[in-house]
Design a protein around this nucleic acid. Structure first.
Length: 483
RNA sequence: GCUCCCUUCGUCUAGCGGUCUAGGACGCGGCCCUCUCAAGGCUGAAACACGGGUUCGAUUCCCGUAGGGAGCGCCA
């Protein structure tokens, strides 16, 4: 039997992180078994479904590298079939018309809760003759669910879960306006699509029991079920926007790599011994349902960052540059940066990439680290760099610039030799010279190795930046009357 | 309230009755490396929620308690 899974989001918002993980699990499970994963958009709620949300979901999945098989299925388009199935249930005596008014329903619900009963609808139209129907009322169709016995789900993650049928009431299959409810639609669609494995969030666990009853009434085989615990926020509560319940597009904008997010997500609630790093092929080969934990996992940005840093470091330089360029349309300063992207700058960025990526946790960090290549003269100094460039340091800058002026050819080795020689001559530590250099050259107190910065910038630009800072002392002194 | 699910270091987790003086990873502390910041190497602190059973023996099995979570719509 070929494995068929599906990812079935409702397009009422973006593809959030929990949905992304569900999609990933379905995808991995199918791919690992030579099966197929389908995408079904559950858009039967016409009020809340939007095209923008559909686009966001599709875009999010493809950014994550999760591709589905066959055409995307839209649930709303299948409502005629859903109605047909509801009517067949009616014909077979497994369903009935219910004429209860909304007011009656509310009353029943309140009474049930007050009495501590879980069964909300009392089945009052279950065996009543349609002749007794109040005039002008459009009925719903309800499932004639079993009154006794139990409904059992053998869940691949949760184990054997049992409900007493006396606690489950007759659910609505078809609304009074003739549209199907979610319960009916999922069952019919999963069956028609040949879905063999339903992998979804455990917020659907109770739904699974009710759906099982529909399958049974229809005489259809029930797919294998796997209900994975939800992802929680860092404090253990429900994941909120503040915590990371963002669309995957937000993670892209924060500079995370799809491979890192996939790796983070797959290890959230699933494990394979002590392994932390998984290539896509390894995930596909090792992922399985029984290894999914039963307790909810908390979302941890720090670990995601660490993983992202790992993937950045092991990424190819040219690919990182390409990823950054692809990212530009999605970030705030992107347009400005994109405008600066000349072939010459690309070359510089590529040359700087090995040391930039070693210092970065996100693509945004890389862009930030490349600041010294992006900035125009005279570059502005941040507070720490400003504090570092005392008048003594600026004096020293002038002197070391003079030494550097003699260096030819302008290589890492040559500048290092010159600067080290200069420091030795002064009886100074290398750091005492390197830090002022760094401040003047990059405007900051942290950067890649100073000799690398020199060579990345080139001789002319380096000397000009040094001159900018060495000269500033004179104007400052003049202004304060010291000179 | 009712139904169902869950509970190992701060976090993600390994463990499927003796191998546990409980392992790995992130984070945190220290040391090394070092021109800064990273990266890297070494190293340290850090957990079986609680109470009963079952058993020769429980982190592992059962039952309670406590604490979390999900669901309870003519929403999906």
């Amino acid at each position: 039997m070929t494995v068929v899974t599906r990812f079935a989001p409702s397009p009422t918002g973006f593809l959030h992180i929990g949905g992304a993980r569900t999609a990933l699990f379905n995808w991995l499970y199918a791919r690992g078994r030579g099966g197929k994963m389908h995408l079904r958009i559950e858009d039967t709620d016409r009020e809340r479904s939007t095209q923008a949300a559909i686009d966001a979901i599709l875009d999010g999945l493809s950014w994550l590298g999760i591709e589905w098989d066959g055409d995307t299925i839209y649930q709303f388009a299948r409502s005629a079939r859903h109605r047909e199935v509801a009517e067949s249930l009616l014909a077979s005596g497994n369903a009935y018309y219910c004429y209860a008014s909304p007011e009656e329903l509310t009353q029943m619900r309140e009474a049930a809760r007050a009495a501590g009963r879980t069964k909300l609808y009392d089945g009052r139209w279950r065996d009543r003759d349609a002749a007794e129907a109040p005039p002008g009322v459009k009925p719903t169709i309800r499932l004639k669910a079993p009154l006794t016995g139990e409904t059992v789900i053998e869940d691949q993650v949760q184990g054997r879960v049992v409900w007493q049928n006396e606690n489950l009431d007759d659910l609505v299959l078809l609304r009074s306006d003739g549209t199907p409810t979610y319960m009916l639609a999922v069952v019919v669609d999963d069956h028609d699509m040949g879905v063999t494995h339903v992998i979804r969030g455990d917020d659907h666990l109770t739904n699974a029991a009710r759906q099982k009853q529909i399958y049974d009434a229809l005489g259809w085989p029930v797919p294998v079920m796997a209900h994975t615990p939800l992802i929680h926020g860092p404090d253990g509560s429900k994941l909120s926007k503040r915590h990371g319940a963002l669309g995957v597009d937000a993670y892209r904008a924060m500079g995370y790599l799809p491979a890192a997010l996939r790796n983070y997500l797959v290890r959230l609630g699933w494990s394979h011994g002590d392994q932390e790093i998984f290539s896509t092929a390894e995930m596909i080969a090792t992922f399985d349902l029984p290894q999914i934990g039963r307790s909810p996992a908390r979302f941890d940005f720090a670990k995601l960052e660490s993983l992202n840093g790992h993937y950045i470091r092991q990424s190819d330089d040219a690919e990182l540059l390409a990823a950054i360029e692809r990212l530009l349309p999605h970030i705030a300063e992107g347009a400005t940066l994109a405008a600066k992207m000349t072939p010459a700058l690309r070359q510089q960025l590529l040359a700087a990439m090995p040391s930039l990526k070693e210092r970065a946790k996100t693509l945004l960090d890389i862009i930030d680290g490349a600041h010294f290549l992006l900035a125009d003269r005279p570059i502005s100094l941040d507070d720490k760099a400003t504090a570092l460039l005392t008048s003594e340091a600026r004096d020293l800058l002038g002197d070391v610039a003079a030494e550097l002026g003699k260096v030819e050819p302008w290589t890492n080795e040559a500048t290092e030799h010159a600067v080290r020689g200069f420091a030795e001559q002064r009886g100074a530590k290398l750091g005492a010279v390197a830090q002022p250099l760094r401040a003047a050259l990059t405007g900051r107190t942290t950067s890649p190795g100073i000799f690398e910065v020199l060579s990345l910038l080139g001789k002319a630009e380096s000397l000009a930046r040094l001159a900018d800072q060495a000269a500033r002392r004179d104007t400052q002194d003049a202004r304060s009357g010291v000179g």
